[in-house]
Structure formats: structure tokens, C-alpha cells
Design a protein around this nucleic acid. Sequence first.
RNA 1: UCCGCAGUAGCUCAAUGGUAGAGCGGGUGGCUGUUAACCACUAGGUUGGGGGUUCAAGUCCCUCCUGCGGAGCCA
Length: 433
Amino acid sequence: MEHPIITIAELPQHVGRKVTLRGWVYNWRKKGKIRFVILRDGFGYLQCVVFRPEVPEPVWEAAVALTRESSLQITGVVAEDQRAPGGYELKVSDIVPIQIAPEYPIGKKEHGVDFLLNHRHLWMRSRRQHAILHVRAELEQAIRDFFHGRRYTLIDSPILTPAACEGTSTLFETEYFGEKAYLSQSGQLYLEPAAAAFGKVYCFGPTFRAEKSKTRRHLTEFWMVEPEVAWLRFDGLLDLIEEFLSEIVSRVLDRCSEDLERLERDITVLEPATRRPYPRLDYADAIAALADRGHPAEFGDDFGGDEETVLASLHDRPVLVTRYPTKIKAFYMEPDPGDPARALAVDVLAPEGYGEIIGGSERISSYELLERRIAEHELPRDAFEWYLDVRRYGSFPHSGFGMGIERCTSWLCGIHHAREAIPYPRTINRLYP
RNA sequence: UCCGCAGUAGCUCAAUGGUAGAGCGGGUGGCUGUUAACCACUAGGUUGGGGGUUCAAGUCCCUCCUGCGGAGCCA
């Protein structure tokens, strides 16, 4: 056959020509001697028109036999037509069914969350889920390009670890040749030594938290990107976060307009985030701002979801909340030289109630202080000797942050729940599919 | 772990303590331009499990299971 096999994305270049496409039946409609088959091939959707008087009877019968999500190869002439969704349609001349699907579980009307998550492997075929996961993929590529373009070295951190990285969260425990091992809850500690080896590094991988969280922002397995930079001080970290966020948001807005449109995402609320600077809010000022708005909080309190939403709503773009009290932050965070009760820590709160998408800090560079903090937090010293080595052999100021991919994707897509922002969500009571 | 909500047809949901229904999906038929097409007909149920109250329980009570939402924790 001389006609080419193409994807739906390539349609505009083949108007008036005969082509073959391969894909799945997204939906079909019939009206007498006309059948409309909506083809889905992963790149788009295409209305294919089968007109009984113009095709051989076996082709008509093949069209009649098609069910939703049956796989097929279909051939016809590409035509522009205002009546077709998307503006193009295929005047079908041949159909080769590959497999006729039985009754498809996911209907055209609404479904419940539990049902959809039980069918996540099929749900991702739907337009909305396809758009979300496509945005996620673009976001991840933007992140990799951001760091690679700035000569960061990718350091893959281990998943299996001997002990708690931060000692606070619950860890998934597993058996490792007779010893206990834990699934990593952060790659950061492993990146600090790498920063001494490569200067600028980042890791990007899955992270595990065994907390029994049941909120729209939590997953037990999620993806996190964590850069770590030698010689970077706190102010420089805040600049890096701004540069990073504004660039990746711009990239997604630039390349995912169709997806965001399908998700009915209001682009104008994301656009301010493409512009610097971002507002910076000192923790003490955040406390005061909350009190003014009927959310009394005392110095030393951490912020809950409601408080985060109030603080984020003060601005039109992500807000950097800085210099939290030392005692509510991780053991490795550098104290503020001007106020040792505060840590050089930053949380980035996304607008519209999407909450904390980034957490970062300058790290302690003093061997003695880090040693003391490990003791204060009652962490097993033996398990942290290698970490102390970073301060023992050529200690240096350094900073870094971590960003949760699902929370960022949720914010960009304007979706309700982080579980839609990951292909196969893992939550407290979901390990299937 | 705590608090709240829910579980009825394949799916989404109705049903004063009194004969379990609708829409979608499936099947059959009709229609030459449909846009989650429409129209007609049709099949489809141990009302999450167990126990109790009652002449009578999808409905009220107890208990267990499962799921959802929130809190804490965090990205």
C-alpha cells in the first residue's frame, strides 16, 4: 500500500490524501447508513465517517461490529470538515479490526472515585486523565531540562536505606537479607555528599511516606525533585526557587495549552507565576498576617492546610515563607545567624489552596552543631557517620530544596486531588492496580 | 490513630417502616451529519456481611467489613 501510516497529530499535513491510522474506538455513534467512529490513538481524537453506500459490505460490517475501546486499523481520506470535532475527519474506505473489546467498564457518564481508581489502568485513556498525565510529563521534562541546562549533575539517590533520613515521618519497613531496611523518604542526605563531589546536583525519583494521611494532598508514594548546591546560601536558594518555578510554569503554559484547555484550567491565574519576583513572607509576619485574618497562631506553631490557604491567598503567585522556628523544622537546617531560634528554611505555598509544593533550607555546615542536633533529635549516630563526613572532610555552605511533582501538577492542572496527578496512585488503602 | 459521611442493577443514583425504580451501559429494531446523538422495545437485583426490633426492614438499633472526606504528619 502506498498510503502512509500516520498519527492523529500529523493529520493537517495529509488533507485530501489517503492514510491509515491505528488506535482504539473512543466512542461511536450511528444514524442509519452513517456510522461515526471516534478514533483515539494517544496523540488525539479523530472522527471517522463510515457511509454504507460508499464502502464494501464487509467494511460496513466491520464498522458495525466495533465496540468502545476495540483496537483497529482504519484507512480513508483526510478531510477538513467544520462538523467534525477538531475540524478534521476521515472518510473511511477500509477497517481492519485488531481486537473487538467486550463491554467497556468505564461508561460515558460519571463514575465514583473508588470505581475509577480500581480501573486506573483504563481511566488514563480518558481525555481528562490523559491531559493531566501529559502535563505531568512536560513538567518533569522541564525540570530535567532546567537543571541539565545549568550543568547540574543528576545523582540517583537510593530507594533502600538503612535508617530514617529525617527521623520524623513514618517509614515503610522491609526485610533486607536479615536486616531491616526502609524505603527512602528523601534523597537529600545522599545529595549533600554528591554536592561536595559535583558542585551542583539533583535527584529525581520516587519517595515513600508511610503516614496514614487521608487528604487530597497526600500519597504514600510520590515523586520529588531535589537539587542541592554547594556554596549556595539562603538568599541564593530563594532566588533559585523563583527562577526554577517561574521557568517550569512558563514551559508548561507554553507547551500544554491544549491539555490545560481540556482541563478547563484558567490560565490567567497561572500566568503571574511566570514572572519574578515572588513575594517573600517572614514566618513572624506570617503569624501576624494570620492573626489579622482570624487565624490566631503563636510563634512555634506550624501551619495547617487552612493557614496555608490564607497565606497563599494574599498574593497572586507562589509565596515563599521563610525563617521558620528551628524546633519545628528538620535537624539538618542551618540556624539564622541573627536569630538562632529560627532556621534558614523556606516553604513555598502555591496559590488557590494547593499548599506546600516546595520545602528547602540552607544546611548546617558546622560539624559540632550537626553532631549536637543528631543527639538532640535522638537519631542513631552510627547511621549518620557518613553524613557527618560531609562536615568532617571539607565542610562547605550548601542549600537545597525538594518539590513534590504531584502537588505541582495538581496546581498547574487545577485538579482536586493529587491522586489524579500520578499514573498509579498509592494511598493508605490503595495498592491496586 | 481520631472525627464525620457513605455502601441498592455493570456504572451513577432514587425509593414516609408497606409490591425495589430511573438514566447511562448491554441486546434487538429504526433513521444520510451525529457531537456524552436520538426514538422504540428488551434483559438485568441475596439492597456490603452478621445479629436484633417489628405483622412487615433498602429504611430503625447493634456489630463487623469496605470506601470517601477531614485532622495530625508532610511534598
